[in-house]
């Protein structure tokens, strides 16, 4: 084992014993500091508007866009929404959101596997935040990378669909630890699967004891009411906190 970097064996691109003649400069800077700084800027902007912001994270296809479509359709008369859509390619999701009539903007990350605070800061320039109660940010489908990048949101919401298996919280602990809410989606499919719902919840709580877990189906509508209620409460709380 290489003691410098922990790599497993001899490797041609390692030359740890090569003499160096350079001068050593100490830096001590956090590598996520820049993102964290920009995220703090976004948060100040959102707070200034009394705007409640969620960052939706999940593996590809667990239903983030469908949850948004359903939520916007059911609540848009009650709350003023705006949506930021993050995808590596295409504007498919943004087109689906646009069809609901809610203002949205698409961020294509290209090779990037996650949204970062810089992209979101520019993304919201395309939206009218002053007239908005709640901003939903759909992150790139990926259970790993988005966990490390604060966007300035109030909460991360993880979506896990029952077709993915109940062990995902243990396999991707960073994500579930960073999330305040877990939506277990597609519960209409449970009769066809061997998905252990109780185990899934136990795993999620093992990683994150305080996590709020809601079981939903966008197809049957089951479980959506508590989700909507939570959204309305949080929007009211945020406005009250900012004296709006």
């Amino acid at each position: 084992m290489c003691i410098d970097c922990g790599c497993a064996g001899p490797d041609p691109h390692h030359h740890h014993d090569e003499p160096q003649l350079g001068k050593t400069v100490r830096i001590e800077e956090d590598l996520l500091a820049k993102n964290d700084r920009l995220a703090a800027g976004n948060r100040r902007l959102f707070d200034g508007h009394g705007l409640f912001v969620l960052n939706l994270v999940s593996s590809p296809g667990s239903g983030k866009t469908t949850i948004l479509e359903k939520t916007l359709g059911d609540l848009k008369k009650k709350l003023a929404f705006a949506v930021l859509e993050g995808d590596q390619q295409t504007s498919n999701d943004a087109d689906r959101i646009a069809a609901t009539g809610v203002p949205s903007h698409q961020i294509n990350t290209g090779a990037g596997c996650h949204l970062d605070a810089h992209m979101v800061g520019h993304g919201v320039e395309h939206l009218d935040l002053a007239g908005t109660d709640i901003l939903m940010i759909e992150n790139v489908g990926n259970l790993v990378c988005p966990a490390s990048f604060d966007l300035g949101e109030d909460f991360k919401v993880s979506v896990l669909s029952v077709t993915e298996g109940e062990d995902k919280p243990l396999k991707y602990p960073q994500m579930f630890r960073a999330s305040d809410v877990l939506l277990i989606n597609k519960i209409d499919l449970l009769p066809h699967l061997r998905f252990d719902l109780e185990k899934c919840k136990e795993y999620a709580r093992r990683i994150h004891p305080g996590i709020r877990i809601l079981e939903i189906s966008c197809y049957s509508g089951e479980g959506l009411e508590p989700w909507y209620q939570w959204l309305c409460e949080q929007v009211a709380r945020k406005k009250a906190a900012q004296g709006k």
Partner: peptide, 20 residues
């Protein structure tokens, strides 16, 4: 016990460099 306070393990920091 299942409750422990994490002390380290999530660092992501540039520490130093050698320059010429």
């Amino acid at each position: 016990s299942t409750v422990g306070d994490q002390l380290s393990g999530e660092e992501l920091r540039i520490k130093e460099m050698e320059i010429d």
